[in-house]
Amino acid sequence: MIRCTFALAALTLALGACDAAPSTAPAPAPTPTDAGPAPVQAVPVTSIPGHETLTQDATRKEGPRLMPAETYIRSYLALFGNLAPLEVQTRARGADGSALFDAWNDYLAALGLPDYRVDQPRGNQTNALMMATFERLGVALCDRAVERDLRGTLPLAQRVVFAFDGTPANLTETDFAPRFDVLHRTFLAYPARLAQTDRTRRFFALYQGTVARHRATGAPASRFTPEQAGWATVCYGLLRHPEFHAY
């Protein structure tokens, strides 16, 4: 990917212009002659209509890169409670017939892990299958985290994911926000208030929608309460979020 050229180029032109005389009407361009096209005259950027008060963005630009597969796995293990990979595999699978997890080897190629034995290079771009794998793994982690943190009796201080107290029925957005912020910090490592989208509100709507679906008459049976299911989907959303995988 091409990076950081455009803003810098604009900056170069702008700085060159900034050293020139204060804003006046630009001098007329010389008439082209047979000797070739006329040279372009530099003008101060502030003399261009609409740019008089425009702040120059001279910041350096870099696009996002995908978290390496090894980092994704280590983060996953940490979110599972700093367990060893095979321990996570066992716990994620569980003995409850849930079919939440298969084996690590089933996911490695799709996660973009290189296979040096056959010179298969690292996958450093997302694709739909990788997204499917992120969802598969995310569902397993979040569902087990709900079981461990929200259904169990683990003290708050020991909860890796849902480190907040009980969930009142009919949660309001005011109740939701600080709890969501805990999850937001857990997965995306910054406060939800700084998100560039209307994130808290969106995720609250997601939570409410899930709760409503699970409360509805005829809803499929679930091992979670509606509120637990709601938090599970919030967890899915953050663990699968573009800002989780790209940095």
Binding site: M67, P68, T71, S75, A78, R185, A189, Y190, Y247
Partner: peptide, 27 residues
């Protein structure tokens, strides 16, 4: 009052130097 850029930088540092995302306590 950290900026979003600062938080992102810290997360990137954790990914590249710790091999994982930062924990809540680290944040």
């Amino acid at each position: 009052e950290r900026t979003l850029q600062e938080y992102r930088y810290f997360r990137a540092l954790s990914i590249d130097l710790q091999g994982r995302i930062p924990s809540r306590a680290e944040v």
